[in-house]
């Protein structure tokens, strides 16, 4: 057996350690991009979470189905889901149930098919119409209907896309629909307006204590200063 002297051991360890680290980097590099990137970003802190919770499907990929989700969901619209999905996946894709959904009036386990239209009933709706089971059943896609057109003001970001909020007229409660605006900021906007008069431009919002350039960036397309 070869016995190494202290000096040789030191060198052997150093070289071996460096080789391990280099090998680790090379392996990462070799595999990089070879696997499906699940891609979850680190979770943003609380103040960002509420504004980011509602996403939209992006570009179409192979093996995906396109479904249309309407009714009591957070973000009704057209979504891509993996082939073989169930109603549950489509509802999750649309941001989940809205608070007025009747979760027991829809069969979440039912399989869907490409081009399906899934309508989630609101509380009392299924009972009133006596057709809860039909409502849950996928139906054919409706030609010419786009997700954006069907989207109600339930989502704060989407509310802005269809109808801007007039910051010179809106009440503090109405401004809560804007992303990143909570009770304190909406009250601060109203107070500023009362003290300084109406906003001449949307950029005037940045004069309100608590609204900086970054927050304004997320608001600028959602607000107006006149009807």
């Amino acid at each position: 057996m070869i016995r190494l002297e202290d000096g040789a051991k030191k060198w052997a360890l150093g070289i071996g350690g460096a080789a391990c680290l280099i090998a680790a980097f090379l392996l990462v590099s070799a595999f990089h991009g070879n696997f499906a990137d699940k891609g979850p970003a680190p979770v943003a802190p609380d103040e960002f979470a509420e504004d980011r919770g509602q996403g939209q499907a992006s570009g179409r990929e192979d093996g995906k189905w396109v479904v249309y989700v309407t009714g009591a969901v957070m973000s009704p619209g057209v979504y891509e889901v993996p082939a073989g999905s169930r109603v549950l996946d489509a509802v999750a894709g649309a941001g989940g149930f809205s608070s007025n959904a009747d979760p027991e009036a829809i069969n979440l386990a039912e399989r869907i098919e490409d081009e399906a239209h899934i309508k989630v009933p609101r509380k009392g709706e299924a009972k009133a119409q006596g057709e809860a089971s039909q409502a849950a059943r996928p139906s054919g896609v409706q030609a010419g209907t786009s997700g954006a057109a069907a989207r109600p003001a339930a989502s704060s970001k989407q509310a802005g896309a269809s109808a801007r909020i007039n910051i010179n007229r809106a009440t503090a409660d109405e401004m809560l629909a804007l992303p990143g605006i909570g009770p304190k900021l909406s009250q601060a906007i109203v107070s500023y307006r009362e003290q300084n008069g109406p906003f001449a431009t949307p950029e005037g919002l940045m004069e309100v204590r608590g609204i900086g350039a970054k927050r304004f960036e997320s608001l600028k397309d959602l607000v107006s200063v006149k009807d």
Partner: peptide, 21 residues
């Protein structure tokens, strides 16, 4: 009472992931 449902996952790499949160 109600129905338990999975959390929504992020679709893109920088999108907020409700599930992880």
């Amino acid at each position: 009472s109600g129905v338990s449902v999975p959390f929504k996952r992020a679709r893109a790499s920088r999108e907020f992931d409700e599930r992880l949160y």
